[in-house]
Nucleic acid binder design. Structure first.
Lengths: 144, 144
DNA sequence: GTCAGTGCAAACCCTTTGCAGAAAG
DNA sequence: CTTTCTGCAAAGGGTTTGCACTGAC
C-alpha cells in the first residue's frame, strides 16, 4: 500500500510506478490506474468494482485487463485475494497478515488486525504439507 | 450426519428419511439418494461430485435438482457450505463447529476439530452485528 | 386432485482465453 | 524494432431459472 497522506496527484503516480517497478511489473498506463485506485488506501474491492472505479475517470481499461492485472498484482504480492463469497473474489490492498469480518448482508469486508485475534494452536498439517496462509473469517449479519 | 456403523442399506435409507422429515423436508427419491451419498460419513463434496456419485448408481438425478437439494439441505442445517475456493462451493456433512485445512494443490479439505484450534479472542463485530459463523481456513501446499 | 419437486435447456455471472493491434523500452 | 500488454469478443465453468411434466400426499 502507498502512503498518500497529503500527497499531490503526481507524487502518488510516481510512487505507484516505483512500487510496480520494484516488483518487476512493467508500469503500463492501465496498471498504474488500477494500482492508484486500489493501493491508495486499505480496502477490499471486487474485480467489477475496480473496473467501474477506474473507468469513472477519463481513461478506459477493459475488463480483461482488470482481471489480468489483479491476477498479476496478487501473484507479485502487491495485493491479496480474499475468498469469502462463492460468487466473486475480493482484492485486499492490505497484504499484512490479518483477518476479516464479512457482512453477508451487504457483501462488505472489515479488517481484523492480526493482534486483535489470536489463533492459539493448531494441529500439524496432514502429509507434511506446508502452511501457506491462515485465514479467519467471521461472518456477521444484521441482528434479527 | 448419520450413524452408519454396520447398518444394512435399508436401515440407512430409513434413517435418512427420518432425518429429512425432522427438518421438514419432503423425502423425495432424489433427495434421499443425495442425502445417503453425502451424509453417510464426514466428507466434503462439490455439487459436481455429488452429481456424479449419485448418478453412478442406477437412478438418475439432474444437475438442477442436485443444486436445489444442496441449497435446501444447507438452508435447513443438514450440511454446511464451505467457501475456500473461488470457483466452487464444497458441502460438508459435518455441521458441528470446526475448521479446515485446504490443500490448494489437490483441492481437498481436511477437518480440524474444534478443540484442536482455539480462536483466543476477537473484537466486537462492527455496527452491532451478530456473529453467524467463525471460520478458520489453513491453506496448505506441497513442501517445495 | 392439488401442490410441491424434478428435468431439461437456456440463461447468468464471473472469469479466462485467443488473437490482432497498440504501447513499452 | 522486438517484446510485452491491451482490447475485444467469444468461450468456459459453476450455478440459477423458467416452465412443462412427474411424483408426493
Amino acid at each position: 500500500m502507498i502512503n498518500t497522506t497529503a500527497q499531490p496527484e503526481n507524487a502518488l503516480r510516481r510512487d505507484v510506478v516505483n512500487l510496480l517497478a520494484e516488483r518487476g511489473i512493467t508500469p503500463t498506463q492501465q496498471r498504474i490506474l488500477i494500482a492508484q485506485e486500489l493501493l491508495s488506501k486499505p480496502q477490499h474491492l471486487s474485480a467489477d468494482q475496480v473496473l467501474h472505479r477506474v473507468n469513472n475517470q477519463t481513461n478506459t481499461v477493459s475488463k480483461a485487463t482488470v482481471y489480468n492485472t489483479l491476477g498479476l498484482f496478487s501473484e507479485k504480492g502487491l495485493i491479496k485475494e480474499v475468498i469469502v463469497d462463492s460468487s466473486k473474489v475480493f482484492y485486499d490492498s492490505n497484504t499484512a497478515p490479518h483477518h476479516h469480518f464479512y457482512n453477508v448482508d451487504s457483501g462488505t469486508l472489515h479488517d481484523i488486525e492480526c493482534e486483535a485475534l489470536k489463533v492459539e494452536s493448531f494441529p500439524e498439517p496432514p502429509d507434511a504439507l506446508k502452511i501457506q496462509d491462515i485465514n479467519v473469517i467471521i461472518r456477521v449479519t444484521q441482528k434479527t
